[in-house]
Design a protein around this nucleic acid. Structure first.
Lengths: 329, 329
DNA sequence: CTGAAAGCGCTAACAG
DNA sequence: CTGTTAGCGCTTTCAG
């Protein structure tokens, strides 16, 4: 804790107190280069007696490192930033960044106009970017300056490593469960169609339906609850005999359930509903939601770590998704 | 956009290109001091031709300003950080901070051990702190160094300005609605009892019940859905004749509804349920939730603005809460 | 193994 | 109104 000086201790204070030069103190505290055991001990003692906290700002300045990590979310409207999925990414990223003295910034990149990325590249305050809901257009717009400091949660590219859940496997697990429990008239409410990584579960759905000789029934959603409700109504209109709905996100599934109930249908008795994400709320909703896990926190933490450490990473890191059966299906 | 140089343009580059000194360029770009219209024009032109983005790091260093805003949430466990309420605060704060090049960090302050605040005070990277779920203990632990850079979303103190929703009025609006629609056996599921600002709605509940000659029925919750469900069960056990539940948060209300339904009770037919917060999901849940608004975004934006601008603010800023009647009550 | 010295990019007195 | 001059706190060659 140290003496509560008016002003936080600087490296100079520590060096002086330890009787060494600033350079030596810096080496000891930073962990680089060599220092005698003696110097190491004296500097260490002085540092925590004075309650020394290195100034990330100064450090970032001299190293040209930048001081905030931007979570850039691509979407049609700025409201994407309100998605619980985004929140989880931010939380996890923040947790990883905190020890580095790095803050997080949340930014919306309009779908189709990724020019914001150029600005981010020109901003020395930005230490890296996590792209969320990545599109090919956005990937192509990543400026050279950002190379090695950008990762994607979703699809990646040659220069942007990808961290993503195994959508296809998750979708398959859910759909197999639906099939195994006797459902045969299964509709799917998708995510936004422009979202490449979300299309993987649509592909999985189509493949599985075809393989089982069942009709394909796809309605477009956008991951939101409101749209999920409207999609369910549309599905019901087109295929009144529906006995199951697979929603591409839990939020969507909640909207589907509400709409179905509004039509007097019982879930899961008349229509089974399953989601994807395993939000905390899924466990306690009524009925509790059958879904597949989406380990966003681990994904985001890995992504943040990759940009912070700049360590080389595989072009693609996939995270497993597992089925969670509850009552809705 | 500018020529894509290998390295972002610096103030020096701009000054040189405009044929003025760095100081002049700084004055123009920073908006302080005086500059001739001519200089102003030339610097402006040079800046955007070069795609100049000021380096917040350097600026923060010289001004001793710090470069990230910490949202410090007090709670029993680190899981408080997962609360949607916290997410809304972070989003709103981030939106306000972005133009300043300031990032946001999310931090958990264990209830009863606010020593983390001391560390934040010693960290030059921290430009300010927004306290969430404030306790008197935490308020007392705010180090002098942080004075003027800390605000509270919740209760405040002589040195910590408060930004908060008018809990009491919101609670009253909801309870009056319950009463007006004929409910007389109304229980309340509270927030955490250590949370001073949440007690205001309990006080309002007690006052109103007493005034109406109705029995007071209070069960402790903690704002979470899971706990809301358990609380509802407890309430049902103690007062089986219940005809309404007022939950201190929407999340709690969702848990209550699920639990009630699990017991075969219909909402709102048998038991009316109302919440507090007006989460986006409240509008589409089944049934849609009657609740009172909690303008977290405006509150958090005001709080963030206050710490960022360091402008003097009133010791307390209250934000109105209004009733939203839907189907659950 | 350690210290002196040179900046990182910017702002802020202070003279012109 | 504008340029010169000092730094902010830290890392990092480069000589001892």
């Amino acid at each position: 804790m140290g003496t509560p000086t008016a002003r936080p201790a600087t490296l100079d204070d520590v060096a002086r107190a330890a009787g060494v030069s600033r350079a030596t103190a810096s080496r000891v505290l930073g962990g680089y280069g060599f220092a005698s055991a003696d110097a190491r001990a004296r500097v260490g003692a002085a540092a925590d007696r004075l309650g020394y906290v290195p100034d990330v700002t100064a450090r970032a300045l001299v190293r040209g490192a930048g001081v905030r990590l931007v979570v850039a979310v691509i979407g049609r409207a700025g409201t994407v930033l309100d998605d619980p999925y985004v929140h989880r990414v931010v939380s996890a990223a923040s947790r990883v960044c905190a020890p580095h003295g790095v803050g997080v910034a949340l930014e919306w990149l309009p779908l189709g106009d990724p020019s914001g990325l150029v600005r981010l590249g020109a901003d020395r305050g930005v230490c890296g970017v996590i792209l969320v809901n990545t599109t090919p257009t956005a990937l192509a717009a990543v400026p050279a300056r950002l190379r090695g400091r950008v990762v994607s949660i979703g699809t990646g590219s040659a220069t942007v490593p990808s961290f993503d859940v195994d959508n296809a496997a998750g979708a398959e697990a859910v759909l197999r469960h639906l099939h195994a429990t006797g459902r045969r008239r299964i509709a799917m409410v998708t995510g936004p169609r422009w979202l490449v990584c979300a299309e993987r579960s649509v592909t999985a759905y189509r493949g599985l339906m075809r393989a089982a000789g069942l009709p394909e029934r796809v309605v477009t959603g956008d991951f939101t609850t409101a749209r999920g409700g409207r999609a369910a109504l549309e599905a019901l209109r087109r295929w009144p005999e529906l006995d199951a709905v697979y929603a591409a996100s839990d939020a969507t599934a909640f909207g589907v359930i509400a709409a179905l109930r509004g039509r007097g249908l019982r879930v899961p008795h008349d229509v089974a509903v399953a989601g994807f994400d395993d939000l905390p709320y899924a466990a306690v909703s009524s009925p509790p939601l059958t879904t597949a896990t989406h380990p966003v926190d681990r994904i985001a933490a890995a992504a943040a770590t990759a940009v912070l450490t700049r360590a080389p990473v595989a072009p693609t890191t996939a995270f497993a998704s597992t089925l969670v059966t509850r009552e809705s299906a």
